[in-house]
Nucleic acid binder design. Structure first.
Length: 459
RNA sequence: GUGAUUGUAGCUCAGUUGGUUAGAGCGCCGGAUUGUGAUUCCGGAGGUCGCCGGUUCGAGACCGGUCUUUCACCCCA
């Protein structure tokens, strides 16, 4: 049979895995730096845990796991006869693959509340699955890197998560633009525009402003039930670029004013407490561009306060041609655990899209050189008699912590050097009868082709 | 889920209005060079033309279906 893998999934070569590990390790380092602790949850959750958490669209994108055994025998016969997939589902599938890391985390917090100290800060770097139609930068299996804190509504966390986002992209050498908004501001807008009942529709429409322009957004809004008065209010709102100019427009909305105050506090905190060296960054207290963006809506239903979205800064030199959606995002959710029976447990978190970050770094050729190199020495032997000597040498080098490998057959040097080249070995130790006798090894540096004679202690 | 798009050697791709034995570059293997890779020269191997069906005397090419790729929606990392 012809080998293949499912749509939207990928295999990774060793060099790719090393570079992915590099991204994960940078992100993990910053998670830990900010006091987040690792947890793990199963790749499968009970389907009931997942359904209804991501909206109607999200439910369609859940991967369902078929029950074991004679699942059709136990299926809802009426629904089956009627070919009603949605209805028959409950009787043939009780598990599903996780769609993100946040909902399983909420479930985890509720189940382990007695073992956790609140505020509880956790991170997780794990794959998630979505039955979406694949595109570039969009896969059915991909990793998310999440940091969340639950059990506090302190705005310090909004500030520190912004610093965390900033720190990761700074270390990765990627210029990013971090956009920040607050759902309460959007709620306030919906209120004064008379669209409080369909705020979701409104935010989805205005989220597309920079992509399709105001005229199309207005069209979209109208089809979603906005009248002329509402359009005017929204237009005026979207034209206000700064927090200061938005604030007066929300003077009549309690929730809107709250959102403004919260965001202002977050920006102030970040600026006042900035650890940046003098002259770094854009004057907002972080390395990357940090902006208030009133058009930022983000899809996930459960966000209630701050929302982030991070994109590649295409104004930065060398990054002009990068076309990629958001590479990180997040937000505050007032109430994610109550559906699992735990009240008053606000949370806030961010998520890094490692796959997209990989694609961007690849396109920018921004991976550090040593991210694709692992082996330090390859040992090659010219004849059978010296092979055992070579195995002794490689064993002693490994015992010292040196990354070393042995070519397992005596063969033509030509072939063995070619193998060393493919293995990306920076140095090759050549053992022939001369070297085995004297203990003076010929060591070739592959990059330059130069060769020197060294004793074992010098390796 | 809707509408497009792609698939030929390990990789990137040619392949004329349907016509003999499907090609190139790179890579791979062997040799020039039995102690020197990445550069040079010579030789060689490698194909179910994504898959299934149809039209035809004849299909890599045309038609239908299906899978996959990419893209726009929807939504999202």
């Amino acid at each position: 049979m012809k080998p293949s893998i499912p749509k939207g999934t990928r295999d990774f070569l060793p060099s790719e895995v090393r570079r992915r590990d590099y991204i994960f390790s940078v992100i993990k380092k910053h998670f830990r730096r900010f006091g987040y602790q690792p947890i793990e949850t199963p790749v499968m959750e009970n389907l009931a845990t997942l359904t209804g958490k991501y909206g109607e669209e999200g439910d369609k994108l859940l991967f369902k796991v078929l029950n074991n055994g004679n699942f059709l025998g136990k299926a809802d016969a009426d629904a089956l006869a009627a070919k009603d997939s949605d209805k028959v589902l409950a009787s043939i599938s009780k598990r599903g693959l996780r769609y993100d890391l946040t909902v399983p985390f909420a479930r985890y917090v509720v189940m382990h509340q007695n073992d956790l100290a609140f505020p509880f800060k956790r991170y997780a770097i794990m794959p998630v699955w979505r039955a979406d139609r694949p595109q570039k930068g969009r896969y059915q299996e991909f990793y998310q890197c999440d940091a969340d804190v639950v059990g506090s509504d302190s705005l310090f966390y909004e500030a520190e998560l912004t610093q965390l986002l900033d720190g990761v992209f700074h270390e990765l050498g990627l210029k990013a633009v971090i956009r920040l908004n607050n759902r309460k501001i959007l709620a306030g807008l919906a209120e004064i525009a008379g669209m409080a009942d369909n705020m979701m529709d409104m935010t989805i429409a205005i989220d597309k402003l920079d992509k399709i322009g105001w005229d199309k957004v207005a069209e979209d809004l109208t089809s979603r039930g906005a009248n002329a008065g509402a359009l005017q209010v929204i237009k005026q709102f979207l034209d206000a670029k700064s927090l200061d100019s938005v604030a007066p427009l929300l003077a009549d909305s309690e929730i809107g004013k709250e959102g403004i105050a919260e965001l202002q506090e977050v920006f102030d905190l970040i600026k006042q407490s900035s650890p940046l060296p003098r002259g770094e960054g854009f004057g907002e207290g972080v390395y990357n561009r940090l902006e208030f963006d009133v058009t930022l809506a983000r899809g996930l239903n459960y966000y209630t306060g701050a929302i982030w979205e991070v994109a590649v800064d295409t104004d930065a030199p060398g990054q002009e041609n990068i076309k990629m959606g958001s590479i990180a995002g997040g937000g505050r959710y007032a109430d994610l655990t109550s559906i699992f029976g735990m009240k008053d447990m606000p949370g806030v978190g961010v998520s890094f899209g490692a796959e997209r970050i990989y694609d961007v770094l690849e396109e920018l050729d921004a991976f550090p050189a040593d991210a694709s190199e692992d082996l330090q020495y390859l040992i090659v032997c010219l004849d059978k008699e010296t092979l055992n000597h070579g195995f002794g040498l490689v064993s002693r080098l490994r015992a010292r912590g040196v990354h070393a490998d042995l070519y397992p057959k005596a063969g033509k040097l030509q072939k063995m050097l070619k193998y060393a080249d493919q293995r990306n070995a920076p140095k090759v130790v050549i053992i022939g009868s001369r070297e085995a006798e004297s203990g003076e090894y010929s060591v070739k540096t592959m990059g330059t082709g130069e060769q020197e004679t060294l004793r074992e202690e010098k390796l």
